[in-house]
Design a protein around this nucleic acid. Structure first.
Lengths: 95, 95, 95, 95
DNA sequence: AACGTTGAAATAGTTC
DNA sequence: GAACTATTTCAACGTT
């Protein structure tokens, strides 16, 4: 076992590589968490300026859904094309 | 009222200020989303290197937990398992 | 310890009561699973009748969103009132 | 065409049949939702009886897993932990 | 048939 | 401690 540890190999896996993956992920998750804190701060600041965070969240949700709708329209187009038996762009057409 | 509208003041709140808050939050949320994509990429890369993402997630979860909490949880799991007569996963530790 | 087991008490908890909770939940989860199977069957049946499951899912999603909207409309109306500078019932207007 | 519409036939499909499929699915989804509510209630009841819902969920998860899978997961967790030099949760088993 | 993608369900965290 | 929101997890689906 000590040999494996010396080579950075434990249980058939490379400890260094695994550690690298894990730590990179932890780093990124930490960044996400910090950003979440910023967001929280903004909500607090807005609240102390008299805005209702709950309403703000609804607005944000609404704006996000609007954007999603744009993307979903693509999907719907595709679906309707299929439903109507229209040719699909990504299907090979026999020559 | 017309004055307020001209100044961007509506119903006693500044529309501009609200817009600023909203947009700052949307910006930060976008950053969070991008980071999430990076994390996803790392998991994919790790997977293609032979690591099991599921186990990695468990590891990440444990590393986030306090060492005492981990032990307490293990103990309680053990208690509940005994109460239910479940087989206990006993792992042989090779010397 | 054997005393505790005889009394159905293990680690300070009542084994019987715990088992009851666990088994009731497992029973309900099983029912949910069976229902999911039925749903799957219906999709399959519909598909073999010539309906596109993807379209059906979109319809279901749409109908669900419509119902959600009905419940949310009160709130959203208020949101838009605020956003558009309409009079707000709960905010004190400076004299 | 007017004939088809009168018969509930549009574009070669039966509107009534589609409606039937959709409504049956919605009914089943509703049942699933109600069962989920029951489950939630049981967790609440258990909690007020002194049981930890979190531990209960872990127990439920383990009971759903195959015994072999549990052990395999434990082993792999152990391997990864060693590779990362994490402390291992060793629980003393009282005789 | 495994893979990635996607959408729903569960879980955890936060606020009131 | 109850409700709500956000995140994470899990399962189904089509695709290659």
């Amino acid at each position: 076992m000590s040999n494996e540890v010396l080579k950075g190999q434990v249980g058939g896996i490379s400890a260094d590589q695994l550690r690298s993956y894990i730590e990179r992920i932890e780093k990124l998750e930490e960044e996400k968490h910090e950003i979440s804190e910023f967001v929280k701060d903004i909500f607090l600041e807005a609240k102390s300026s008299g805005y209702d965070p709950k309403i703000m969240r609804l607005i944000l949700k609404q704006r996000k859904m609007d954007q999603d709708d744009i993307q979903e329209q693509e999907v719907m187009l595709d679906v309707y094309r299929r439903a109507l038996g229209m040719e699909l762009p990504d299907i090979e057409e026999a020559a």
